[in-house]
């Protein structure tokens, strides 16, 4: 119906940047998500240099002040500026979630690709291992890992990565499995590609669009997970600024009316998770060549 037989050259929008611009223009929600992502990235990179106060400097004279022009988000029980702490914490929280998701993406993709492509006993063994991980309540597993390995940022990253691996592995396994005998995979073998190359260069990239949705959801979960671990005292230690600890410490003061201690870090946490959840569809459209009509 649509005339595809005309022999015009590919249009300008076919460059990668042009395609990204097209996806953003096509969907205002994606545009908003990317704008918010840019804001958070800006906070992470430049935040520590721009904030008005040292996030660790205490000032007993101005403890527990309500939000004002001096202290936008108020001050905490030690007189530290909540706004500065919230902004500075962005870098740590984003680092944890991005590193954890990247790790589980890589490991999950490798395991899932192997299981999906070669199948057989390899597939069975890998699947049972992943089932074992999934059988635990994931947050409890993460707690266990951090408690066993010790209370450091790296261990939070490892714990968060481990609980996310099964999601990636299963998704990749399914996507690879349906394509392992596809015509283009066979054609790639005839063109002199080894099995490994066919898998890595031809089949795996086709799994990327659904993976991107998973990545963006996971980024949100990972932030929540890291904050959750910190909240119960198993993550980053005070006085390091981190949203989870700040909510945990601030929670004690809500009863006595100092709401700003918990609400602002909580709000930032919520906005970050919200951003990543909105990002999914946009990321998928960007990596899917079929959207390039």
């Amino acid at each position: 119906m649509v005339d595809m037989t005309s022999s015009q050259p590919a249009r300008k929008g076919d460059t990668t940047l042009g395609h990204i611009a097209y996806v953003l223009k096509d969907n205002p929600v994606t545009m908003l998500a990317f704008a918010m992502l840019a804001f958070f990235l800006g906070c992470a990179f430049f935040g520590p240099a721009l904030v008005p106060y040292d996030p660790l400097a205490t000032n007993a004279a101005r403890a527990l002040e309500a939000p004002s022009w001096d202290h936008w988000f108020g001050t905490d029980n030690l007189g530290r500026d909540v706004f500065s702490r919230v902004i500075v914490a962005t870098r740590l929280d984003l680092t944890i979630s991005v590193a954890a998701v990247a790790l589980s993406f890589v490991v999950g993709s490798i395991l899932g690709s192997i299981a999906g492509y070669w199948g057989g006993w390899l597939d069975a063994v890998l699947n049972r291992c992943l089932d074992t991980i999934m059988a635990f309540p994931l947050f409890v597993l993460a707690m266990g890992v951090v408690a066993a390995l010790g209370n450091t940022v790296e261990n939070i990253i490892y714990a968060t990565a481990i609980i996310n691996i099964p999601f990636y592995a299963r998704l990749v396994r399914a996507e690879v499995n349906i394509r392992r005998n596809a015509g283009f995979a066979q054609a790639a073998k005839l063109a002199g590609n080894s099995d490994l190359r066919v898998l890595a260069v031809h089949i795996f990239p086709n799994a990327l669009p659904p993976m991107m949705v998973q990545v963006s959801l996971n980024l949100g979960w990972a932030i929540l997970n890291a904050a959750g671990l910190s909240f119960i005292g198993l993550g980053v230690r005070p006085p390091t600024p981190e949203w989870g600890i700040m909510v945990a410490e601030g929670a004690n003061f809500i009863v006595s009316g100092e709401w700003w201690l918990a609400v602002f870090p909580g709000l930032w946490l919520m906005l970050a998770v919200f951003t990543f959840n909105l990002l999914g569809d946009g990321l998928r459209d960007i990596v899917d060549p079929r959207k390039r009509t």
């Binding site: 015509g183 283009f184 066979q186 054609a187 790639a188 031809h202 086709n206 079929r290």
Partner: peptide, 10 residues
């Protein structure tokens, strides 16, 4: 290949 669509990497 039989199916030209299936035989080209999308």
């Amino acid at each position: 290949f039989q199916d030209a669509t299936d035989s080209l990497n999308p």
